[in-house]
């Protein structure tokens, strides 16, 4: 019997949550005995070619590409986990939600004190994904089965959750592992 597949994605986050995945240290050797990693920045597999048992999402949605990736994960994963504060509440990227999008772009590309941009053009290549007006947590875009908060969630949090899911049990974290920071 083939091993269950785990896929991961980094949306609008800082990659810190993926660092936390690696932070399970040598336990990753035990993990790859029981699961295969599919589409993930860790192995650089870009597209889904088979159904995955578990999808782990870092980061919220700040642009249309994030939304497309998240919807792709929902379509291809049996259980979807939002992993970390950006995925569950928007996190630091959502700090821009109180500022109109145009003001953010102007500050970043035109008015910022260290910006050198004589043509005063905000990057607008059609290859660039369009930004959403507001950064949104994952559960506001697709159905999320489990949320693991933390900035980042600890390696133990992920370990606990994966072990529960692989044993066909619901994720029920102990008090010490529920952290919003």
């Amino acid at each position: 019997m083939s091993k269950p597949k785990v896929a991961t994605a980094a949306l609008s986050g800082c990659f810190g949550c993926h660092m936390s995945i690696l932070d399970i240290d040598e336990r990753i050797l035990d993990l790859i005995e029981v699961v295969d990693f599919h589409k993930s920045p860790i192995n650089d597999i870009k597209t889904f070619t088979e159904r995955c048992a578990i999808g782990i999402i870092e980061g919220g949605c700040c642009n249309e590409e994030n939304v497309a990736v998240l919807q792709d994960f929902r379509k291809n994963c049996d259980i979807l986990i939002s992993f970390g504060d950006c995925a569950t509440m928007g996190g630091v990227p959502a700090l821009r939600n109180g500022i109109p999008l145009k003001e953010c772009l102007d500050e970043a590309y035109i008015d910022g004190p260290t910006v050198h941009n004589p043509n005063k053009v905000v990057p607008n290549d059609r290859e660039l994904p369009l930004l959403l007006n507001k950064v949104r947590p994952c559960q506001e875009i697709v159905k999320i089965d489990y949320s693991l908060p933390g900035c980042p969630p600890s390696a133990d949090t992920l370990w606990e959750a994966l072990n529960a899911l692989l044993a066909d049990k619901p994720v029920d974290l102990p008090y010490e592992l529920i952290k919003f920071d």
Binding site: G90, S147, L173, Y175, F180
Partner: peptide, 19 residues
């Protein structure tokens, strides 16, 4: 309080009010 109640993520949409 959220820790005690085991809140992992709110079910309601975020408002992101200006304050």
């Amino acid at each position: 309080m959220a820790y005690r109640m085991g809140i992992m993520a709110p079910k309601y949409p975020y408002i992101y009010p200006e304050a």
